[in-house]
């Protein structure tokens, strides 16, 4: 249970970073933390106490396997996160070229 709560805490740290930080790079780091926490949560869902790796052998009867599906899904999700982060960072670099600052309160050409 404490593991899940720590996961929630990590999620909140990331969410705080996105909502409250004024620096674009810190916001991106917050986004990264949020994505890690949810990946961690999904992997935890598949974990069994004292479980072993889910490899079926010919003459063995594996009783306590961890669930392999979340691991496969999280791998996909990590790659999606990588794509988003790369795109967002490259946009942030371009924004720095145009505005000369990473401060979100000074990047305000759009109004209305």
């Amino acid at each position: 249970m404490s593991l899940y709560l720590l996961c929630l805490l990590l999620f909140c740290v990331g969410f705080y970073g996105i909502l409250r930080k004024r620096n674009l790079v810190k916001m991106i780091i917050g986004l990264g933390i949020m994505e890690y926490s949810m990946n961690l949560f999904f992997v935890l869902l598949g974990y069994r106490m004292q479980g072993r790796s889910p490899i079926e052998a010919m003459d063995q009867n594996v009783l306590n396997m961890v669930d392999p599906l979340p691991q496969a899904l999280v791998l996909t999700s990590i790659i999606i996160g990588l794509g988003v982060t790369a795109l967002v960072i490259s946009i942030a670099i371009r924004i720095y070229d145009k505005y000369g600052t990473f401060d979100i309160t000074k990047i305000n050409k759009l109004r209305g």
Partner: peptide, 27 residues
């Protein structure tokens, strides 16, 4: 251009947060 990058950044951050919520829901 400056405005387009700004809009895209905003959209990307909010869209990613939305995707996070969807992912947790699926989990």
């Amino acid at each position: 251009e400056a405005e387009e990058l700004e809009a895209s950044f905003k959209y990307a951050i909010m869209g990613s947060v939305a995707s996070c919520f969807i992912f947790i829901g699926i989990a």
